Simulated assay, not measured.
Amino acid sequence: MLNRKRTGLIIVDVQGKLARLMHDSEAMHASLRTLISGIKAIDLPIIWLEQNPEKLGETSPELTELLSGEPISKYTFSACGEPRFVDAIEASDVHTWLVAGIESHICVYQTVRDLIELGRKVEVVTDCVSSRTPANRQLGIDRMLDAGARPTSVEMCLFELVGSCKVPEFKAVLDQIK
């Protein structure tokens, strides 16, 4: 079970025209909006990344409007190749990271693999990851699970983190799911 005191969210590279080329891009963006809004309602930390933003562009505007702070720019496929990202991970009290973004078989996979090697637990939000093709999306998910990540979904992780219909955050999360 996810522990809300030790869980955070990482959004990987949902940016520019590439984000629109993902398999089922509209559904992925809608799921990401729900996930981000729910995580904010629970008040968990969010780290968001941009791969080579000078070439690929900024994070999708419908996500940026929900996110605070600034993204961490990276030029390696694994976010763990970026010292600012590793510093942010190590400075946090988070031990379990929910991971979402693109592309499932490249940057998301390599980041997840390296987070696990750093001793972190990882849950892949499967309805919030994609690649340009369904086959590569699934291959990325399969490889992440083989590396030790666990699968979850937006609804599963949010309700697991809330834990009860009697906590104040429940209504805000429920409103996002509806």
Rank of each mutant, 00 (worst) to 15 (best):
I39R: 03
F170E: 02
T96P: 07
S31Q: 09
E103R: 02
M1I: 10
R4C: 03
M1P: 13
D87Q: 12
L174P: 00
P151W: 00
R143E: 09
T7G: 12
E90Q: 06
E26W: 06
V167D: 07
E62K: 11
H105F: 03
L63G: 03
V14G: 08
A147C: 09
V162F: 13
D175V: 10
Q110F: 15
F77K: 04
S73K: 14
P83D: 09
E82K: 09
S68Y: 06
P151L: 09
K17Q: 14
P61A: 11
R113M: 15
M28F: 13
K178I: 02
A172E: 07
M1L: 09
V162T: 14
A91I: 06
E117N: 13
A147P: 07
R120W: 01
M28N: 14
G140D: 04
I72L: 10
P83T: 11
P134W: 05
E160R: 12
R6P: 04
R4K: 12
R4T: 04
P53H: 14
V173T: 03
M1W: 07
L9N: 08
C107I: 00
I72S: 06
D13L: 03
L161N: 03
C80F: 13
L139H: 10
Q51I: 02
D24F: 05
Q176Y: 03
T59A: 02
D142Q: 08
D175G: 10
I116L: 15
L139C: 09
V167H: 08
I89N: 01
E82A: 15
I102P: 05
E169A: 15
L161I: 01
R137M: 01
L98S: 13
G119Y: 04
P168R: 11
S78K: 06
T133P: 09
L35S: 04
K17S: 12
T111E: 13
G69N: 14
A149Q: 08
L2A: 00
S164W: 07
V99D: 11
Y109T: 01
L21S: 12
V167W: 05
E62L: 12
S37I: 00
L18D: 05
D43Q: 13
V173W: 04
R132H: 10
I89E: 00
I141R: 03
A172V: 02
I46G: 00
A135K: 09
G16L: 03
E90G: 02
E50L: 10
